[in-house]
Simulated assay, not measured.
Amino acid sequence: MSIPFIDLQAQRKALGPLLDEAIKRVLERGDFIQGKEVQEFEEALSLFTGAVHSLTCGNGTDALTLVGMAEGLGAGDAVFVPAFTFVATAEAFSVLGATPYLIDVDPITFNLSVESLKQGIADSKLAGLKPKMVVAVDLFGQPANYNSIKDVSEEHGLILVADAAQAFGASLYGKRVGTLADYTTLSFFPAKPLGCYGDGGAILTDLDGKATLIRSLMQHGKGGEKYDNVNIGLNSRLDTIQAAILLEKLKVFEDELSSRNEIAKRYSKSLEEFAETPSLIEGAISNWAQYTIKLERRDEVQSKLKEVGVPTAVYYPKPLNQQNAYMHYPVVSSGVTVSEKLASQVLSLPMHAYMPEKTQQQIIEHVIDAITQ
């Protein structure tokens, strides 16, 4: 029996006719760029999250870069990012000439460490940098500790960005991801819990003026009309077919979130005696973009699971400070030892909303065998 890590085809079969009709409507109209489904999807995003402005764009990395552009980031500006994340979190700002300042994460939640952030702010000032922005990554679907992070960001005048590429649908104290920071950036990469059939992203914010500016920036710096360019911008738009697909997927997303949470509960109940299972902070609801355990013999266990046909993944085998392209960027003086250790411990198990309970039980049995043998 073949076990998929993320079964996009199971979702495709469940939604097939609806998706086919949605795509067909766009094909028949021919409004492939900025078609009506784009606006409809943006309105649906705002309704779902509570954000005032939902601005769709080409991908999640562009979403971060557009936020950096809207805030005028450049040389001498420090942007605090966790070392334990996908490279896009730092890449998006380094291309603007800003300095990604690498800080550590919490060993339990894997999200940004507030104490490390405080140290990084102090360090950056001593280094002659201007602390400008903190990007809290909602890793594996759990919101970061925004209450504490917001206190620090407000104290030091930092712009707070939620990199929620993995966390759409999650919440903290009853507030959806999308309303927890000054800006929230999303990715609709196909493997994400809400994914399209190509690239896609979005920026959520309640800041009216910045939303207007970002609208301009994502369309070549467009002003009042097509050939009136008032800003230097990008070409970053969500195409109409992808918006149509996302609209249909969003209609069943609440049910998929419930399924993901049930799957996560079964994993935790069965595996908590054998591995360190995920732990949520008080008030948090995860979307379980990944179900990730910690193991001391990670590589050995992963190898055994591969032998019996259970796919796994390691997010991420190298923290940013060990990536060749980012080694020259500053690291908080207290170090990123948690990030470095997690890179050798984390193992993500198959997770998607359409996983049969029987299949999950097979996975669990194989995982326990691999750990205990």
Rank of each mutant, 00 (worst) to 15 (best):
G30L: 10
N111V: 02
A244W: 12
F5V: 01
I363F: 08
A165N: 13
G50E: 12
H352V: 02
L295V: 02
V177M: 11
A325G: 00
E300M: 13
E42W: 00
G30H: 07
A98C: 08
F253M: 07
D31R: 01
T372A: 05
L45H: 07
P100I: 09
I363Q: 05
R297N: 15
S216E: 05
E276P: 01
N321D: 15
S279G: 03
T277D: 14
L47S: 15
R266N: 06
V314N: 14
E248L: 02
L204F: 04
Y183D: 05
F32W: 06
N145F: 12
L15T: 02
E37S: 00
G76Q: 06
I363G: 11
M351D: 09
P143C: 10
L180Q: 03
R12D: 11
Y315M: 09
V137H: 00
F48C: 04
K13G: 02
I263W: 09
L47G: 14
G74N: 03
Y146L: 06
A98P: 03
R266D: 12
G309M: 02
T359V: 15
K249M: 07
S2L: 06
E273I: 04
G50K: 11
A167F: 05
A136K: 01
K318R: 04
Y267G: 05
E256Y: 04
Q166N: 12
A88T: 13
V52D: 13
A92W: 04
K150F: 06
P100N: 08
D206Q: 12
I363P: 04
H366C: 11
S46F: 11
E155P: 01
A325L: 11
T49K: 06
K294M: 09
A211R: 07
S258I: 08
H156Q: 10
A92V: 03
L207H: 13
Q9W: 10
G74S: 06
V67R: 06
E262W: 01
N235Q: 15
L8P: 04
Y146T: 07
S148D: 15
L238P: 02
F48K: 09
P190K: 12
V79E: 03
G195P: 08
G120I: 06
L172R: 03
R297T: 01
A211L: 05
L27R: 09
L66K: 03
F253T: 10
Q322E: 10
S258E: 14
A90S: 10
D208M: 10
E21R: 13
T212C: 00
Q322F: 07
K13A: 13
A284D: 05
P330W: 08
R237D: 00
G200A: 10
A275C: 11
G16C: 02
D7F: 08
I33K: 01
L45E: 04
K118T: 03
Q323M: 15
F274N: 07
M218T: 11
S303H: 13
A325W: 06
T292V: 15
E282Q: 15
R260M: 12
G72Q: 00
E307R: 14
C196S: 14
S339M: 09
N145D: 15
L66G: 05
C196I: 11
A167L: 11
H352Q: 05
T205A: 03
V105R: 07
K249Y: 03
N111W: 04
T212A: 13
N261F: 06
G335L: 07
G309C: 04
K36D: 15
A75F: 00
L180A: 05
Y101L: 09
S113I: 05
I6A: 10
V135P: 06
H53V: 09
G50P: 08
L126D: 15
Y101D: 04
E254P: 00
